[in-house]
């Protein structure tokens, strides 16, 4: 038994292997591995006696779960109505160009996951970009590079 399966087992035991705790268990797995590994989901299905397809249904329904490994930093570009009219899509294009991935995907070096959101509720400061819970207000295409550089730099400093 590898470390991964053991961890998943502990998460399930924390909730007494209850079917109704499925989402909590998935959240724990997501927090631990930064995505939902296939083997982990199969273990959960077996132990909780839930058909695997139901778990997949839940895992693909909620945005906080991901079946693919997520990047270290999460970049979210708002494309809601207010941000849209102020140039949100152009900023998203710039992010896609700079990172080389489409929205919803992770860069090859697993540093950034690019996502879109419909509205963040702070339309007054749009177009909004959020990276790891840090909000960037009134962003322009020019700023995209510096935002990414800031997080890349943090990475280097930590090393």
């Amino acid at each position: 038994m590898n470390v991964e399966t053991q961890k998943v087992k502990i998460f399930m035991q924390k909730h007494d292997n209850q079917k109704r705790a499925l989402i909590s268990i998935l959240q724990d797995i997501q927090a631990e591995f930064n995505y939902l590994p296939k083997e982990a989901l199969q273990d959960v299905a077996k132990t909780l006696e839930i058909p695997l397809i139901h778990i997949i249904g839940v895992a693909t329904f909620y945005r906080s779960f991901s079946l693919e490994p997520r990047g270290k930093h999460q970049a979210t570009v708002c494309t809601g109505t207010a941000c849209h009219v102020r140039g949100g899509p152009k900023i998203l294009d710039e992010f896609e160009r700079k990172l080389g991935v489409e929205a919803g995907h992770t860069t090859e070096d697993r540093q950034f996951t690019l996502e879109t959101v419909a509205c963040l509720g702070c339309c007054a400061i749009g177009p909004v970009v959020v990276v790891d819970n840090e909000y960037f207000a009134h962003t322009s295409i020019r700023e995209v590079g510096s935002i990414l550089k800031k997080y890349r730099k943090k990475e280097k400093d930590n090393e």
Partner: peptide
């Protein structure tokens, strides 16, 4: 059998087997 089910949501919703 519970072999197929709904996945994703909204306009991306589809019916498929796990993975």
């Amino acid at each position: 059998a519970h072999a197929i089910g709904f996945q994703n949501r909204g306009h991306k919703k589809k019916i498929s087997t796990p993975f």
